[in-house]
Write a protein that binds this DNA or RNA. Structure first.
Length: 508
DNA sequence: TTCTGCTGTATCCGCTATCG
DNA sequence: CGATAGCGGATACAGCAGAA
């Protein structure tokens, strides 16, 4: 018998023999048995569901088997690519809008590829991993995540196949290139490699993204306008005792009791924590944060928001300075909106006479002195624990809680409102900036829901000038009364110090 | 088959940087 | 300081995919 190993299948004999496997596949072949292996061996493996062994044997020994595997792989990959491109919800086929960019995950691309083109996915995974790390998908060299690289590779490949459909990742890369200030040539070269779109398309994408960049703030505005329309704005929802109760209607005992309302403290972690009340205005004391949270039952409830703006400068240098062409300092205004962490829309804007405010709110009472004493104890304990080694191991209260400490501990939601290309150092420019910012002021007819507009000291002065200049307007809107200027941060402290200095020591 | 929308490319034009 | 190349914004146009 010819025991020479053949690289091609044996020719079909004149009389076809039907192979009938007999017996089981031996678990371990002896060396002399290797030569006896043939197609029948592979069939016996398949008969016993040992596909890996059978396919490996065929692939390693028969050119026809290799061709068949390649043909099968190509066919399956093409079929998978078609299916993936037909799947409209696929992560690679999404539109490059703000929501999709926020929710984008590289692993979603990998999941799609694994589902529709498993052979390609397996090949890519095997390319960049070893058997030990193919599960967690981290590089064995620098422990870097491999998902972005594999996802990008798939995105580039499919973009080359169907550039009109697969362009989400390319759009992301274009935006990143634009943010880095890449030149047009960089866009061109990267685009030819399938890594990004052209610069024109990138600019178009960015323009589209900017159109709805303030949508979050506008939706909050619409909620407040709806509440203004239905007359539910000034009412703290589902809290009957905590409605917009006028301060003048409360007796002094009620004030004392309400100021003693304890915050909902969490259990256990700080048992020695003194009960810290809020030291805010009386109106906010009447409403507990938990009742506000529970208020959102059916109608949408807006927590309110404020607007902040400040000057921004951009220097434009002329290459050849002349009388017509000089260096220019462009003074513009940049604004953003900040959603209130602590809801304020239920609070009343009605003015209260100073004479109607109970005396207890001005003079320190017994409770106030007790609270100050507790605070001082905590502060002194912190100082002692920090500076005296003997007390280093002692536990002190690290954070004095107040009624809204949970809300205050959350990160603020900031919404960029873009640059207003008007000069804020002039009254005309400030009026135009105010008019633009008034687009975010909720309104119902001529009635405006006044927002706090933070800025530095100079911005607030300009804001007041704009109010004065428009004081003869025919409506509240034309008088720019939708925004109330408020000095912020260290400017506020500076003003406070100035007032204290003038009040205590005069103009020294 | 036609229309519409999106994308890439080419081109124009003004401005800037560089070189002699 | 003039000439020229290069860059970037704006625009037109062709090609393609998808919907009607």
């Amino acid at each position: 018998m010819d025991y020479k190993r053949r690289l091609t299948p044996v020719k079909t004999p004149r009389k076809t023999k039907i192979f009938r496997p007999v017996g089981s596949t031996p678990s371990k072949f002896r060396i002399q048995d290797v030569k006896a292996k043939n197609v029948g061996y592979a069939c016996r493996c398949i008969e016993h569901y040992e596909y890996k062994k059978a396919f490996t044997f065929l692939y390693n020994n028969y050119a026809g088997a290799r061709r068949a595997v390649e043909h099968l792989v190509k066919k399956e990959v093409r079929k998978g690519v078609r299916n993936l491109l037909d799947y409209k919800e696929g992560s690679l086929l999404k539109k490059c809008n703000l929501e999709n960019i926020k929710n984008f995950r590289w692993t979603a691309i990998l999941a799609d590829v694994a589902k529709y083109i498993p052979i390609l996915y397996a090949a890519l995974i095997a390319t960049v991993t070893s058997p030990s790390n193919e599960k967690d998908l981290r590089s064995r060299i620098r422990n870097k995540a491999l998902a972005p690289g594999i996802g990008l590779a798939v995105a580039v490949l499919l973009h080359l196949y169907s550039p009109m459909k697969v362009k989400f990742v390319q759009g992301l890369n274009s935006i990143e290139l634009w943010r880095c200030g890449a030149q047009r040539k960089a866009f061109l070269h990267m685009n030819q490699l399938g890594l990004c779109t052209s610069k024109n398309t990138a600019l178009r994408l960015i323009s589209q993204l900017r159109v709805h960049s303030d949508e979050d703030l506008m939706s909050l505005k619409r909620v407040i306008e709806h509440q203004m329309e239905t007359g539910t704005l000034g009412l703290p929802v589902c809290v009957e005792d905590a409605t917009d109760t006028d301060i003048s209607e409360l007796s002094s005992e009620e004030f004392v009791q309400s100021s003693g309302t304890e915050a909902p403290t969490s259990s256990g972690s700080l048992p020695e924590l003194p009960a810290m009340d809020d030291f805010d205005d009386s109106v906010s004391e009447n409403v507990e944060p938990d009742t506000i949270e529970s208020a959102s039952d059916s109608a949408p409830h807006s927590p309110g928001y404020c607007i902040t703006w400040d000057n921004v400068g951009k220097m434009i240098k002329a290459c050849h300075q002349s009388t017509e062409r000089q260096n220019k300092m462009m003074l513009w205004a940049l604004a953003y909106g900040a959603v209130n962490r602590i809801p304020t829309t239920h609070l009343s804007d009605s003015c209260v006479k100073a004479a109607d405010i109970p005396l207890q709110k001005f003079l320190p009472m017994e409770e106030d002195i007790t609270e100050i004493k507790k605070r001082m104890e905590i502060i002194v304990a912190r100082i002692i624990q920090k500076n005296m080694p003997y007390f280093h191991s002692c536990t002190v209260v690290s954070h004095i809680r107040h009624s809204f400490w949970r809300e205050s501990s959350k990160k603020s939601k900031v919404i960029n409102l873009g640059v207003c290309q008007e000069n804020p150092s002039t009254t005309t420019g400030t009026i135009k900036i105010m008019e633009q910012l008034h687009e975010y002021v909720p309104r119902q007819g001529d009635d405006l829901f006044q927002l706090v507009c933070f800025g530095d000291g100079l911005s607030c002065e300009r804001h007041n000038d704009a109010h004065m200049a428009r004081s003869n307007g025919e409506s509240r809107l034309s008088k720019l009364q939708g925004l109330q200027p408020q000095v912020q941060e260290f400017h506020k402290r500076m003003l406070h110090m100035q007032i204290c200095k003038k009040g205590c020591w005069g103009n020294l």
